[in-house]
């Protein structure tokens, strides 16, 4: 962070000096503007290498955490470099598109970064029964099977009715709060009421069914948190590919002219 801040301050100072010495300010084709542009493009290329590093884990090209820190801080550094390169002008059609794409990539990345500072802690605190995200449907299916087996084993008509009308539909749903069992407080109240209606011998089964519902709620929360943690990538990654392609074309065309 300190290095990024230092480099940003140095870049700003260089921009200030270049602006003062260049009548009309820094433009993309001036010496200073080109330097800023080349530096920004280089940083963007490095940013794109993170995806390759993630795919080639076996290569062990530095720690993944180090790569991620570099990706974040150098990405932040690219922002002032791009602005200095453009002279704070949007320019023509291609350069305007580039600025928009760069803005989308940066903002989506910062959004994801912010989420990643908060949501993992929430997940740790509130999803004790976390599982592999991609296996949540399979785990839920197993929970359904387990709940059905336990409810059938008691032979109690009340438990069977509750399972048929509340627990099974809840386990089949997305686990959201629209269902009665989707809310922990209401679920607890329902099972406390059931305890008065069923024999004492079946209270343990009721507790298991309540636990199954709790696990289902946690898995639903895990799915939601996981989607929030990763949905921004659907903007960040594709737009990055477009940005890199257009940056390369922009560099080639400006060198030609």
């Amino acid at each position: 962070m300190l290095a990024t801040a230092g480099l940003a301050v140095a870049a700003a100072a260089a921009y200030g000096l270049a602006s003062r010495s260049a009548p009309g300010g820094v433009t993309g084709d001036s010496a200073a503007g080109l330097a800023f542009g080349i530096a920004a493009a280089g940083l963007m290329m490095f940013e794109g290498l993170l995806a390759a590093r993630k795919r080639k884990r076996a290569w062990r090209l530095g720690r993944a955490a180090t790569w991620m820190r570099g990706h974040i801080w150098l990405g932040v550094l690219a922002v002032p470099l791009v602005l200095f390169h453009s002279g704070f002008h949007s320019g023509g059609a291609i350069t305007t598109i580039l600025l928009v794409l760069f803005g989308l990539v940066t903002l989506s990345g910062l959004f994801g970064l912010a989420l990643q500072q908060v949501l993992p802690r929430v997940m740790t605190a509130r999803v004790e029964m976390e599982t592999v995200f991609e296996q949540i449907p399979q785990v839920v299916a197993q929970l359904r099977k387990e709940a059905a087996e336990r409810a059938a084993k008691t032979g109690d008509p009340v438990i069977a009715k509750v399972h048929r009308e509340a627990i099974e539909p809840f386990l089949l749903s997305d686990g959201g709060r629209a269902q009665r069992l989707g809310d922990a407080g209401r679920s607890e109240a329902m099972f406390a009421e059931l305890k008065r209606l069923v024999p004492l011998a079946h209270h343990e089964t009721l507790a298991d069914l309540a636990h199954i519902c709790e696990e289902r709620r946690q898995l639903a929360l895990q799915a939601r948190l996981h989607r929030w943690l990763h949905i921004w990538l659907l903007v960040h990654v594709p737009v990055s590919y477009a940005l890199l392609l257009l940056v390369a074309a922009h560099a080639v065309m400006t060198l030609l002219y």
Partner: peptide, 8 residues
């Protein structure tokens, strides 16, 4: 080609 122009 006008799209590559750096401005109007």
């Amino acid at each position: 080609r006008i799209a590559w122009s750096s401005g109007g």
